[in-house]
């Protein structure tokens, strides 16, 4: 029972963190921060990066990492764009549904294949995840460059632009997609046998092997999911910029790692919660937008992310130490 309460209160911490940050900005710059424009633009910015962070999280739960996730997303976007333009060129009168279908299917398949390739290198060949995905990052980036010669691809049908730029009421379509993906990932991780096994494998790979789990298959699938997230994110990226190009979103890589760890995922594997990650993402978006209004650049966002990560890590390490010290003091007091 005790343990259960603690895991509940964790989410509360993250919600609290979000509320405090949100309130701080609302009080200091109420006019701009609480404006409909700002809130909406925040909702526009979260999805692509949030989905990539979810993919990163799945890899990190297995005690791995996916450095190739952005490159994979870019490649998926480019593949999808090329197929889409080919289709519209061959069949100029193709319907909206087909357009979206082609885009989504190609992006998702391409991303998943990229992820499977990572999984193959890691689980079958036994390469360390950090090295394997470092290599595939370069490889995916390179393939994308070769295919596009480094030039952007633009000019998509309006249906594509709709995904990331339209709203349902006041909520952006992309944000709704993000929430759906988030819930599905949460269900996958917490409510399916495979998700359960991913957590266990990440916590102790050897014990997993001795528990008759098929470690290879689990790792392969975990990285495929990571790749799938890259594929989904690529659709939103493609729609938001109305173009695809090698190197889009490269700065997301570090941010994705940071936000996942800020969200309480253990980089050594086996621990992490999707909803904690959600509130970490939202909090950071508030900070980014708030500082943006205050006139800081995007670069400052990186500074803040980096500093926050260090501070949060310090806290997570210092708090138990302080608790221990307090406990010891109490003990010595009671002895004397």
């Amino acid at each position: 029972m005790k343990q259960h309460n603690r895991s509940v209160s964790r989410v509360v911490y993250y919600i609290l963190m979000f509320v405090i940050v949100f309130a701080l900005f609302s009080l200091t710059i109420p006019g701009q921060f609480l404006s409909r424009f700002n809130l909406q633009s925040m909702a526009f910015q979260v999805p692509e990066f949030g989905i990539l962070a979810l993919g990163m999280m799945v890899a990190m739960l297995t005690a791995g990492i996916d450095l190739s996730i952005i490159a994979n997303a870019n490649l998926a976007g480019i593949m999808s764009a090329i197929c889409l333009l080919k289709v519209t060129e061959l069949y100029p009168n193709v319907g909206s549904l087909a357009i979206i279908l082609v885009t989504v299917v190609v992006a998702v398949i391409s991303g998943t294949i990229g992820g499977l390739f990572n999984g193959f290198l890691i689980s079958v060949l036994g390469i360390l995840p950090i090295l394997a995905t470092l290599g595939t990052m370069k490889l995916f980036e390179g393939l994308a460059t070769v295919v596009t010669r480094g030039r952007p691809i633009t000019g998509f049908p309006v249906e594509i632009q709709y995904i990331a730029n339209e709203t349902i009421g006041v909520v952006p379509v992309s944000f709704v997609i993000f929430l759906i993906v988030l819930v599905m990932v949460a269900l996958f991780l917490k409510k399916t046998p495979l998700g359960f096994k991913i957590y266990m494998l990440g916590s102790n790979e050897e014990a997993a092997r001795y528990s008759r789990l098929n470690n290879r298959a689990i790792l392969l699938r975990a990285y495929a999911v990571s790749g799938l997230m890259a594929g989904i994110a690529s659709i939103i990226m493609m729609s938001r910029f109305n173009s695809v190009k090698v190197g889009y979103g490269n700065s997301y890589l570090l941010q994705a790692v940071l936000v996942v760890i800020l969200g309480g995922t253990n980089p050594d594997g086996g621990e992490g919660d999707v909803f904690n990650a959600l509130f970490a993402i939202l909090t950071l978006q508030c900070i980014a937008s708030g500082f943006n209004i205050l006139g800081f650049t995007d670069y400052m966002r990186n500074v803040i992310y980096g500093s926050m990560l260090i501070i949060v890590l310090m806290f997570t390490i210092m708090v138990p130490r302080i608790r221990e010290m307090v406990k010891r003091k109490k003990e010595t007091v009671s002895i004397s």
Binding site: Q3, F196, K197, Y199, M200, S203, N204, A207, A208, Y210, S211, L213, G270, E271
Partner: peptide, 14 residues
């Protein structure tokens, strides 16, 4: 034998 960080339940059911 065990996933020491994980709960009794997780370990028993794996």
């Amino acid at each position: 034998g065990l996933f020491t960080e994980k709960t009794i339940m997780d370990n028993v059911l794996i």
